[in-house]
Design a protein around this nucleic acid. Structure first.
Length: 203
DNA sequence: TTGTCGATGTTCT
DNA sequence: GAACATCGACAAC
């Protein structure tokens, strides 16, 4: 399967966020492939976006990776408990990113079930299966993504994104989630998801 | 089914 | 000391 190259990420987050839908996020751990289809994303447009960590050109140790160039992972801890996984976009010095909000499990589902609930895939209840990866904190737990992967090169061989199948779907755009502090920016339709996919976090 | 609420710890002021 | 790109428990209906 074809790996997304550096140039794919070297564009505005609004484009990358939409193009990432249907693509496959892969984490290789000890030779085991854990993979999932991306079904929901949010664009963070950097310096001009009041919801972005890099708003106004803010530059702190945490957000430094967003300034480093396209195709790297930006992973941060939120609410003291959950990690969020982002893809850095745009050229070096322009700090944009795309938050991956939800994915649909493909390979290594037993590993995901173990990480989230200490159960095998077969033992999951219906609601546990549905809730396995339908949120930014949940998918990080399921795919074993944490702060150690902050700055990881997505054009490498450990954590990467590849072309999905030919899948046919409709993209829905909606307001972003959990950014009530962002004044007018919270009204922007910068969240994108695959219509009718059951793993989308908020319809 | 909907809602409200608190956990938890890093980061920045 | 405050804020935070979330989640799950639990109550009320």
């Amino acid at each position: 399967m074809k790996l997304l190259d550096r140039e794919f990420y070297n564009r505005d987050s609004l484009l990358v966020a939409q193009d990432l839908l249907g693509k496959v996020l892969v984490h290789e751990i000890g030779g085991q492939r854990i993979s999932a289809k991306i079904v929901e994303t949010e664009a963070y447009m950097g310096v001009e976006d009041k919801a972005a960590h890099s708003y106004g050109g803010k530059r702190t140790p945490r957000v430094e990776v967003m300034y480093g160039g396209p195709g790297y992972a930006y992973v941060f801890l939120i609410y003291g408990m959950y990690n969020c996984f982002n893809v850095v976009t745009r050229e070096q010095g322009t700090p944009q990113a795309v938050l991956v909000r939800a994915v649909e499990p493909l390979e290594g589902v037993d590993v995901m079930a173990q990480s989230r609930f200490q159960l095998t895939c077969r033992q999951l209840s219906k609601s546990q299966t549905k809730g396995l990866t339908n949120g930014p904190g949940k998918l990080c737990k399921a795919l074993a993504i944490d702060k150690r992967l902050n700055g990881e090169d997505l054009c490498g061989s450990r954590l990467y994104i590849e072309e999905g199948g030919p899948g046919n779907f409709t993209i829905v755009s909606a307001k972003r989630v959990g950014i009530d502090y962002a004044e007018e920016a919270k009204e922007f339709y910068w969240r994108f998801y695959i219509k009718d996919n059951q793993y989308v976090s908020v319809k």
